[in-house]
């Protein structure tokens, strides 16, 4: 029983990673990963929405009539996305402005609707919560990996939170002067995504033996 719970929690990290294995939510993945801070902001937003939408979908699964379940999920998800949007605008305006259109687009992020439809409406609240945490963290880690590679090689910087005298930007000596520009563009994101997908494919095949 305990191992089942751990499995629900951990499979989103690698075995069923939403980005690299399930290939869900690729549009925001490619769109926001130009800076590490954007990946963190987007990841936090998705975890928040995923956790609450999974909990509420699981809670209401016996009340929501089957024929209108998708509209109901969308209303629930849209409500939480709007909450995240308003909170970020008020308390983290710089992340809000750099995430731009991708923040409201979490509503139609297929990871969230996918987990509501494929998992939360059939399972208990605790399992749905664990699933949301696992998938959300898996998504965030994937974003972080892509953003780190794209920002370090594409711009020669690592952008984090500004604290006190530290302005939040770490500059990497040689790469800052001679960055590989293509990585900051959409084409570079697709190229990198292809290589990473290839790597994870090779990795999971090798593991299965």
């Amino acid at each position: 029983m305990a191992s089942g719970k751990i499995n629900i929690l951990s499979r989103g990290l690698l075995k069923e990673n939403p980005v690299f294995i399930l290939m869900l939510g690729l549009c925001p993945t490619l769109g926001v990963t130009t800076q590490v801070i954007n990946a963190l902001g987007m990841g936090a937003g998705v975890i928040f929405v995923l956790v609450f939408s999974n909990i509420f979908v699981s809670l209401l699964k016996d009340i929501i009539p089957g024929s209108v379940r998708i509209p109901s999920y969308i209303v629930i998800i849209a409500a939480f996305v709007t909450i995240v949007e308003m909170m970020m605008h008020a308390f983290a305006p710089s992340i809000y402005s750099s995430l731009g259109i991708f923040l409201p687009l979490i509503v139609v992020n297929c990871i969230i609707l996918g987990r509501a439809e494929a998992f939360a409406n059939k399972n208990s609240i605790v399992d749905s919560f664990l699933d949301a945490i696992g998938m959300g963290v898996g998504f965030t880690l994937a974003l972080l990996l892509i953003a780190l590679i794209r920002e370090v090689f594409g711009s020669g910087t690592i952008t984090l939170f500004a604290m006190g005298s530290f302005d939040g930007v770490i500059e990497i000596p040689i790469l800052y002067t001679y960055p590989v520009r293509v990585l900051t563009l959409a084409a570079g994101a697709l190229l990198l995504m292809g290589y990473l997908k290839g790597f994870f494919e090779w990795y999971s095949k090798r593991k299965r033996g």
Binding site: L60, I63, I64, P65, V68, P71, S72, V75, I76, A78, A79
Partner: peptide, 9 residues
């Protein structure tokens, strides 16, 4: 049911 969910949201 749908109206209720929407109004709570």
């Amino acid at each position: 049911t749908l109206a209720l969910i929407a109004s709570i949201a």
